[in-house]
Amino acid sequence: MKAAAFAYERPSDLKAALALMAGARGSTRIIAGGQSLGPMLNLRLVRPELLVDIAGLAELKQVDRGGDELVIGACVTHADIEDGRIPDVTRGAMRRVAASIAYRAVRNRGTIGGSLSHADPAADWVCALPALGAKIRLRSTRGLRELAIEDFITGALESALQEAEIVEAVRVPVMRPAARWGYVKACRKPGEFAHAIAAVLIDPESTGARVVVGAIAAPPIVLHDAAPLFGGRVTADFHRQFDARIADAMLAKAGVTNAADRHIHVAVLRRAIAEAAA
């Protein structure tokens, strides 16, 4: 199938893009790498009147290493992260997550900001970044605002992005040396929609455990303090304290009614915890 007709603009800078968005009438969509939107356009599931292409905007391809964080422009691609073309403050975690997204040819165009805007609950960044404690920076002519990733993803394919607002950057905090990271997803083959995703960042010395369970039919479950999963306290032997029953109950409460689904999610979570402990 071929896309329905639309108009197309390629603004020269961010300011022009924001102005274009603010002045647009009718249905307007932003496109960057187009790796999520492209298939939907071709299937005519999405029929915008105007596409605003921000892939060329230099402001969105910048990366700044601040004191305790890395600010990644929205149009940085998965391949940029995978290849280490940008600094890594997550001790390899983001590079590994990036490398597991879809396929290389897709990663060469797909962007971190685009992936978050699409808000697919089975997407890697949607699940990994909340565990890393990342924030998202949104820009419009009205100004700038910033949200935690988990507050940005509001539903399956739904985000807090407002009219004429653009994802500008993602802020990723530096991972502490003592922190342990685990990221596991269940797919039958590379590139398939994940059936379950678990991301864990465990730092027994300070911040405790942050756990994300994703690829459910809703925003990921984000536990800022996952101590209850480990018997109430995150200790050095946390992986031995993991209580699958609590995880199962948590999933049931989150609306995962099917027992096989819960079983798979819990198994994936257990593995992510084991990976963190390894």
Partner: peptide
């Protein structure tokens, strides 16, 4: 073009 044919079909 196929795209236009699909427009008509739609």
């Amino acid at each position: 073009t196929r795209a236009e044919a699909e427009d008509i079909a739609a």
